[in-house]
Amino acid sequence: MRIIKGQEIVEDQWVHVEDEQPLPEGDVIISLARWQAEKDTLIGRNQGGLGVRVSPDYHAEDIADDLEHFDVVALDFPVFRDGRAYSTARLLRDRYNYEGEIRATGDVLRDQLFYMFRCGFDAFEVRADRSIDDAIKAFSEMTVTYQPATDEPLPLWRRRA
């Protein structure tokens, strides 16, 4: 599957694994529930990277203590209108200093990508029925930002010439 990573389209090396499936070798993304249940064995796993899939019912503070174990935090958008994950991503980056990948999954559409990027998302699984080649244009449409966010430390008033 192709995803957007660092504003480029790349072939994804990560595999989403459902709770009942055995873990394959390689880089896997599992549910937060599975992580919580199998934490002890998962910490010792050395066959690839580990990511968790987090529903917006969970907030940044709910996973903050475990962040060191995750290479990917995949924040899910059940519908694009559910904006909770924007705050979660910002807090993971700005408050908990998480430096791994923050990936948007679920109802991920072109017109949300720029805001997601500004909040600290750096990987995007664009919804399967949408054109990813179209979606990537989202990053070049708007160039002026008033407020500081994860992508920009300063408000515009400190940048105005």
Binding site: F80, R81, D82, G83, Y86, S87, R90, Q112, F114, Y115, M116, F117, R118, C119, M142, T145, Y146, Q147, A149, P155, L156, W157
Partner: peptide, 14 residues
């Protein structure tokens, strides 16, 4: 007004 314009975190509030 400027701060809230296209605020990325609050574009999809409840």
């Amino acid at each position: 007004r400027q701060w809230s314009t296209f605020h990325p975190e609050f574009a999809h509030l409840p």
